[in-house]
Computed example of a mutant assay.
Amino acid sequence: MRAALISSAPASVSSTAPVALYPLAVERTYATELAAAVTRGAVVIDIRTHAQRALQGTLPGALAIDTDLVAERLDPTRPGRLAVAVDHHVEWILVSAEGSDSHRTVTDLHQRGLRGVTHLVGGYAAIRAAGMVEAVTEARHIAEDVARVTAH
């Protein structure tokens, strides 16, 4: 299940030294939810660098897209969009190495109007720890691509 942490304004916690809490408006997906998300049609985007993927391992079935190109590829109004980027409500799950890079990228994409984007909490490390690395290969878009390739 996708979860969102939302706060309308920064708040302070009462103690001897106030700690400012800043609003989080980023929806998140957990590694244990990945298979269900893929089954319902979510598209997983691996935003790790080539070097990170070489070191940590690949995520079969995920689309590897450089962070600098994510907005252009996922935005249905951009000429360089992916074919599956049909509207602003496509469910995308961004995966970074540890989760922090994808969190920042999702914030930017939400500001651009892409409301169906979440980030995977804990990133690729969480997927490996949960034993879910192969879960993405069941994605509908992967099955369609395999069918197209094998039909030729």
Rank of each mutant, 00 (worst) to 15 (best):
A31D: 03
T32E: 15
E33C: 01
E33F: 04
L34I: 14
L34K: 03
L34W: 10
L34A: 03
L34Y: 08
A35T: 10
A37K: 15
V38S: 01
V38G: 01
T39V: 08
T39H: 09
T39R: 09
R40K: 15
R40T: 15
R40P: 01
G41E: 11
A42G: 00
A42P: 01
A42Q: 01
V43D: 02
V43G: 00
V43Y: 03
V43Q: 01
I45Y: 06
D46M: 12
I47F: 12
I47S: 07
I47C: 11
I47H: 07
I47M: 13
R48K: 13
R48F: 14
T49R: 11
T49I: 07
H50M: 08
H50W: 10
A51G: 02
R53K: 07
A54E: 15
A54Q: 15
A54N: 14
L55W: 13
G57D: 09
G57C: 07
T58M: 08
T58L: 11
P60H: 13
G61F: 06
A62M: 05
A62S: 09
A62I: 06
L63P: 07
L63D: 11
L63S: 12
A64C: 10
A64F: 02
T67K: 07
D68I: 05
D68E: 09
D68P: 00
L69K: 11
L69G: 04
L69M: 14
V70Q: 00
V70W: 03
A71V: 10
A71K: 03
A71D: 14
A71W: 08
E72D: 15
R73T: 08
R73N: 08
R73V: 06
R73K: 14
L74D: 00
L74H: 03
L74F: 02
P76E: 07
P76Q: 07
T77I: 09
R78K: 13
R78S: 15
G80Q: 15
G80S: 12
G80R: 14
G80I: 07
R81S: 04
R81K: 15
R81V: 05
R81L: 04
L82A: 05
L82P: 05
V84M: 05
A85C: 14
V86P: 11
V86H: 14
D87L: 02
H88Q: 09
H89P: 03
V90D: 02
E91K: 04
E91L: 05
E91R: 13
E91G: 02
W92F: 15
W92E: 05
I93F: 01
L94R: 10
L94E: 13
L94H: 10
L94P: 09
V95G: 04
S96I: 09
S96G: 12
S96A: 14
A97V: 00
A97K: 00
E98Y: 05
G99A: 00
G99C: 00
S100M: 03
S100K: 01
S100C: 00
D101I: 06
S102A: 11
S102K: 02
S102N: 03
R104Q: 13
T105S: 07
V106E: 04
V106A: 12
T107D: 13
T107C: 08
T107N: 08
D108Q: 14
D108Y: 14
D108A: 10
D108R: 10
D108K: 12
D108S: 11
L109A: 09
L109T: 14
L109Y: 09
L109S: 08
H110V: 14
H110W: 15
H110S: 12
Q111R: 13
Q111G: 12
R112H: 13
G113S: 08
